[in-house]
Nucleic acid binder design. Structure first.
Lengths: 212, 212
DNA sequence: CAAGCATGGACAGTACGACTATCCGTTTAC
DNA sequence: GTAAACGGATAGTCGTACTGTCCATGCTTG
């Protein structure tokens, strides 16, 4: 198919497709002559994935490129692919808490990782974000929200188990990688939405509900 | 204190503080003369909260304003305050899935809400986001990630319970509102970070781990 | 087989969000 | 009493994500 049809079927404007091609998010179509290329179903799939990452998961374009490069690499282990993706979706956080709170937060987070026996790199970006978040909650006098970090961690492990269970039903490495990556990124959007609904429910039941 | 000290203590540049004042994120200081104002501890707290929402939770400035206006309102019920906050942090999603998948997704989501007995408004923004996310996962041939939505929902309810338990230890309505709002927004950042760590752990254990 | 619309590629322009800089006419503090 | 800081207004910058315009070529339809 040519670019016009790709645009129509994906609902992405032609100039935007060209932009994604320029940025290397979308592989070039097969050139049939100097100024004519043909695109296949995989381009359509890729374009849908790009839009989902940008529109739904709010991953910046540069991050999408990193994610897709990881997905396309077949010299990288799945663990390393996942690491790339994690780095692409967790920018190093601005330091906004004060130092004393951060020191306490770091101790709490390190202890959590240790108690759980989690095998994670000590300088993973998610660790930095977690420390900063805990530190900020302390700075804002909300330490009580963070007293039962371990219980949160336990609830979070449940997701991961569910996801792993869903993913290991596939056998092709490429398909597994794709599921892991999509699950990692869109899973967050999904969980965030579910969480808001659960909150709204509790709020409605305990706090008077709508029009009360 | 004057603006320079507020800037130094909050680590926010003076021009940025002026910008937040203009945007109405920060209430004006008490004018002691035509061009001299004094700021208090509450301004410092507020500024810290603003930075946390922007830098850590990535809430856009306009959204921060909505959140703070809700927090400051005392004519609004807690349930309505929470509703404002939810709307501020969940932009109406771009429609990117195809219609057939969205119809199926909507049925699945409505059934979930129904089965769980969740009391939520049918047109809550989180519902739209959830439907679109499920629809996109189907479009991307990842329906299996979403087969056990109900199990995800159950894990999510656990968080909400934990949060409620942490919040009801306070009795002052203003403090409860603040905890709920901060917990809602920074809680998401916290959970996202925890989830990545849990994933990295599973990945390290099952997929070879680092340098393997 | 010609007219005219589409195409790929290069590059410039736009829109928006979040600051950042400059000015100005006061205070204020040494 | 003068230089630095202040509040307030306005303009400028920077980054991200597109969007528009051009051009030389190719397809395609009457």
């Amino acid at each position: 198919m040519r670019i016009a049809e790709l645009s129509r079927r994906s609902d992405v404007p032609v100039p935007t497709i060209k932009y994604y091609l320029r940025e290397g998010l979308l592989p070039p179509g097969e050139l049939t002559s100097r100024n004519q290329a043909s695109y296949g179903e995989q381009h359509l799939r890729r374009l849908r994935l790009i839009r989902a990452l940008i529109d739904l998961a709010h991953v910046p374009v540069a991050g999408v490129k990193v994610v897709l490069d990881a997905l396309d690499s077949d010299s990288m282990s799945l663990h390393d692919q996942l690491g790339q993706v994690h780095r692409a979706v967790t920018p190093r956080p601005q330091l906004t808490a004060n130092d004393a709170d951060r020191v306490a937060a770091e101790a709490q987070v390190r202890k959590l990782v240790d108690d759980r026996g989690w095998l994670v790199e000590p300088d993973a970006p998610a660790i930095a974000t977690l420390i900063e978040t805990v530190a900020v909650l302390r700075s804002l006098d909300q330490a009580r929200l963070v007293e039962h970090l371990d219980a949160y961690a336990e609830a979070v492990e449940r997701f991961t188990e569910l996801e792993v269970a869903a993913v290991v039903t596939r056998t092709d490495p490429h398909q597994i990688a794709e599921s892991v990556v999509i699950g990692t990124i869109l899973g967050e959007t999904l969980i965030a939405a579910l969480r808001l609904l659960a909150q709204e429910n509790v709020s409605a039941r305990r706090l008077g509900g709508p029009t009360t």
